[in-house]
């Protein structure tokens, strides 16, 4: 298949037509993750927190499910900022929305609680 034929389907996939409506709301998640690796000075923890919180608000405002991983990532940003309680809240939210995350989120919650106990 020629790349440009494929591009058409990608555009359809990304914009979502009637038959393929996206399952989730996608805001800054993937971009901010990329920036955090590629240009860390442009994606400080505070910038990440702001962008991810904005995603959650927008998803909720549009009655859409925020993308899987968003609560977990925001929780991790809170954790790195020392906001342990907020971190645990987000890890728990990820787990209850996506039970597939339970094993990993339990580990993250344990880790956060360990920090809090110190």
């Amino acid at each position: 298949m020629k790349p440009y034929l494929w591009l058409g389907s990608i555009v359809l996939l990304l914009t979502g037509c009637q038959t393929a409506r996206p399952l989730y709301y996608w805001g800054n998640y993937e971009n901010i993750n990329y920036l955090a690796y590629a240009k860390p000075d442009k994606a400080t923890l505070d910038v990440q927190r702001e962008k991810l919180e904005e995603d959650l608000q927008k998803a909720a405002g549009n009655s859409l499910t925020a993308n899987p991983g968003l609560h977990a990532q925001l929780g991790y940003v809170y954790f790195q900022l020392g906001r342990v309680d907020d971190a645990i809240k987000e890890f728990t939210a990820e787990k209850s929305l996506f039970p597939e995350a339970a094993t990993f989120m339990d580990r993250m919650i344990e880790k956060a609680q360990g920090t809090a106990a110190k």
Binding site: L13, Y37, G69
Partner: peptide
């Protein structure tokens, strides 16, 4: 670059993707 582009297609296919950065 590549790692941070796979979450969306995989999730939209109906899978749960372990948060990649974590």
């Amino acid at each position: 670059s590549m790692l941070t582009t796979v979450t969306r297609p995989l999730s939209e296919l109906g899978y749960y993707v372990i948060p990649v950065v974590l």
